[in-house]
Design a protein around this nucleic acid. Structure first.
Lengths: 220, 220
DNA sequence: AAGTTATCGATAATTATTTATCGATAACTT
DNA sequence: AAGTTATCGATAAATAATTATCGATAACTT
């Protein structure tokens, strides 16, 4: 028996998976048993071949003429991302954005469970944001150890981002979801994934700027 | 005189520009007059050549041995992104996330100014979120016309995303910053830029999952 | 039952993006 | 003043990602 060696899927591929997952859940609700790469591609304005390559990269195989089994595919992606059993995470920074994330119910689908929030602001400590208790930041190392939490969601002012990161690393946090605009420095072994609002806005702004002269030219 | 034809910078390049901008502002505060691609690269763990290519793509030229003039570079990037004069935007959806964005003061640096919020929730209409007034959603077309606003920030539940988008397009909104997990369908000419939290979390989750077996192997 | 067709997966080609090489420039050092 | 060095920009090479081609498969149609 020949075991196909799977190269780990590329970053762009991983980024597309949640989109597929959303559609698959929808199809499951509609009791659809199979879905083709053609259909998925159409829904997201991608190329069918790209969808097939993405799925193939995870070792998923389809059936000619039928496509992919919806339930099987869903499970495979969930498992691949580790979203089938929830990971517990700390929220660091209970301000506007932190509060918004705490209140977002959708994370359940993403295998993420925020178990506690932390802040240095005394007016916030002791309160609850969307049912999540806010602790003083200095309690984090102790709680991380006791609750075996190793994921941190960073939603605090840019100025505090790096020093707090250093503290998180000390406390055994090994994965940081960074919502600050700061490029965080962390030792190898600590994963940092940045949600880069500025980058996203730059793309939007640039597209707008690029389009304007074209429109004028068209109108003339 | 030979005019160099500038190919419009690639998407990855555009996405890196705000990061550079942040550093440049910092250097300006420190009264640094020049900065080299080597230094920028070091700060963000990039290759110097990549930084130079990014800047070259905008038509910015440096000086051998000195690098790039900080102020000039800042202006060039700001101008390139259209961030030197603020664009007015509507916030559609005054929930947790919308409220957080309304309260984010950093957008001033990004050439973005939220002038009004909209919602269908009667308990929100008429109130203010961080000084921004919340209007009923159906008032949007009228206000868009009168205030000449053509950027919409979409922060509402997934279920309402597409129908609201259709309405925004009707109202003359031509650029949508999409914070919902939905792949929005919009006519050509309407720019949609998605802030894909799920994609970002997928990358984090996958990295975590990928690392675990390695760690165990290392420990053994 | 035979022919048609939608889809898959393997391989190849193309395109996009990053990284390397190297001569030119101009500040700094001796 | 001559030599050294950090950096730039142009060109080339390498890598990554997307897209195309095409034979194989199996459901559907006639």
């Amino acid at each position: 028996m020949i075991e196909k060696i799977l190269t780990t899927p590329s970053l762009p591929t991983v980024r597309r998976l949640p989109t597929y997952l959303r559609l698959l859940k929808e199809l499951q609700d509609e009791k659809q048993h199979y879905v083709s790469s053609t259909y998925i591609a159409e829904r997201f304005q991608l190329e069918p071949i790209q969808v097939r390559k993405d799925l193939a990269a995870m070792g998923i195989v389809g059936q000619p003429r039928l496509g992919f089994a919806v339930t099987e595919l869903t499970c495979a992606i969930m498992q691949f991302l580790g979203w089938n059993n929830a990971s517990e995470a700390f929220l660091i920074g209970a301000g506007n954005l932190g509060s918004a994330l705490a209140g977002y119910s959708g994370f359940a689908d993403y295998g993420l469970n925020i178990v506690a929030a932390f802040d240095v602001d005394k007016s916030k400590i002791g309160t609850r944001i969307h049912d999540i208790k806010v602790f003083p930041l200095q309690k984090l190392p102790d709680l991380a150890l006791r609750l075996h939490v190793h994921i941190g969601i960073l939603t605090l002012p840019a100025a505090a981002a790096q020093t707090t990161t250093d503290m998180l690393v000390q406390a055994g946090i090994t994965a940081i979801w960074n919502f600050t605009p700061v490029k965080l420095m962390a030792p190898k072994g600590v994963i940092v994934e940045k949600v880069d609002l500025a980058a996203s806005l730059a793309v939007l702004s640039r597209s707008v700027k690029e389009k304007l002269p074209l429109k004028i030219a068209q109108g003339a």
